[in-house]
Nucleic acid binder design. Structure first.
Lengths: 159, 159
DNA sequence: CGGAGTCGGTTGCTTTATACAACTTTCTTG
DNA sequence: CAAGAAAGTTGTATAAAGCAACCGACTCCG
């Protein structure tokens, strides 16, 4: 995008999109939610160009959505973690996920959100359908089903 | 963006972003939710380039999120309306709006969501804080407060 | 009847972001 | 001491977004 912001708009939707609306940004955040926290792991998982990934991570750190912190010294190796501000984007990701489940992938569901422990799925208001609780980020887990892209023929895991 | 899709991803979040993740798209949908339905009105409100607006609207119609229908013949003038599929993006917009309210505009809230009739605001699960009901798209109204961008000095409406 | 205005686009050119691949630095392991 | 991993950085190319001007169909005004 030419400018990442929307100068004619004074709107909370626009202001959020100015921060997380660029290509790849929300997928990076999704990956961090899933526990993918290192540069190379993110790059491999997303297939994004490394310079773009670098630019996005730097921006997200500047915005206070991620923090960069070393998980080892010598050599310094960093990982990216969500701040509270970043974790508060969870409802956005859940809303995108649920719309994608309904309209995106022809009934396939590669990922399912569950209430930790209880195991119930989440409804569109992030409540557990089993126990009825309001589920927060920390109480939810994302379970990857085995679902793959339909046109890709499933192969036995080999060599 | 070079490609609008994310070929390495088989994920409902990514599949949703392939459809609505391009620059301007979600703001166009927000405007249609607010009742701005005509090409020129959208263009004026958003300040988006006309060719981009045209491309986005065409894509959204192809995707079944908007429908184009004439509101008059001779000359044919069209407006864009949300389909059910489009209206189901409401939770995404609400989530973006609420994050923006919390983190985006320094406490200013240019727009407030209320439960129609009851007048209560919506919580982060789209429930009415006054009566407790689960609020759906059709039961909600967006109220624009007078809030403006702080650095813009408020002027009397003139000429 | 002629000119201005409106709506909904389309076209051409410029600017900017994204993609891709190769390279770098620092340190670890065999 | 060579190979490899992690985390970037750099350079070049291509595609998308921005901008302004134009267009066709019709209406309204004088």
């Amino acid at each position: 995008m030419l400018n990442r912001d929307y100068p004619s708009q004074y709107c909370p939707v626009a202001s959020t999109l100015e921060v997380v609306g660029e290509r790849w940004t929300l997928l990076i955040i999704r990956d961090v939610f899933l526990g993918i926290r290192r540069f190379d792991d993110l790059q491999r998982d997303l297939g994004v160009a490394r310079n773009i990934l670098q630019a996005r991570l730097e921006r997200l750190v500047e915005e206070g959505i991620l923090v960069k912190r070393p998980y080892q010294e010598r050599p310094v190796r960093n990982e990216y973690r969500l701040t509270e501000k970043g974790a508060d984007l969870w409802p956005v990701l859940v809303a995108l996920l649920q719309w994608g489940d309904r309209y995106g992938l022809e009934g396939e569901r590669p990922m399912i959100l569950q209430h930790r422990g209880c195991g119930g799925e989440l409804d569109d208001r992030r409540r557990c359908v089993a126990c009825g609780a309001d589920v927060t980020v920390t109480e939810a887990i994302a379970v990857r089903t085995g679902a793959r892209r339909p046109q890709t023929v499933a192969e036995p895991v080999s060599a």
